[in-house]
């Protein structure tokens, strides 16, 4: 019993406690490679991609997406909303809190909200 408790304690202590990173920093690290330094869809990777990444500064297109859709596509990837597989799922990289922060950050890039701009 005692042993098991100690084992459990060690296990819990050694779980990686990932700090919550800011959406801006996460965007720089994970999204800029395709969506671009300016968030305009013109990333360093795009030349040979058959579907081009979304322009996150496009208020018209971005305002047609609800926060729930943004959450889903970031967490589960393009296929989950019938979009391209080239938009990857980030659920193993970002926590749910970080994904919610990211959806709000995208609203600052498009300067838009759902249903209107």
């Amino acid at each position: 019993m005692g042993n098991k408790l100690i084992f459990l304690a060690l296990f819990v202590l050694s779980l990686p406690a990932m700090a919550r990173e800011s959406a801006k920093d996460n965007y720089r690290t994970y999204c800029v490679q395709c969506h671009g330094m300016a968030g305009n869809g013109k990333g360093v990777n795009i030349r040979d991609m058959s579907v081009q990444p979304r322009d996150h500064t496009d208020a018209k297109a971005m305002s047609t997406r609800s926060d729930d859709t943004l959450f889903k596509v970031i967490k589960e990837g393009g296929l989950s909303i019938d979009k391209s597989v080239l938009m990857p799922p980030w659920g193993d990289t970002l926590s749910d809190d970080e994904i919610r922060d990211m959806a709000q950050y995208l609203r600052t890039l498009c300067k838009c909200k759902y249903g209107g701009s």
Binding site: R28, V32, M37, K42, G43, V44, R47
Partner: peptide
């Protein structure tokens, strides 16, 4: 091709970000 960490080795280009 874009080194490590990639974002330190790219810059905006006319059509897209470039290395």
């Amino acid at each position: 091709p874009a080194g490590e960490f990639y974002e330190d080795h790219i810059k905006p280009g006319p059509k897209r970000d470039v290395v």
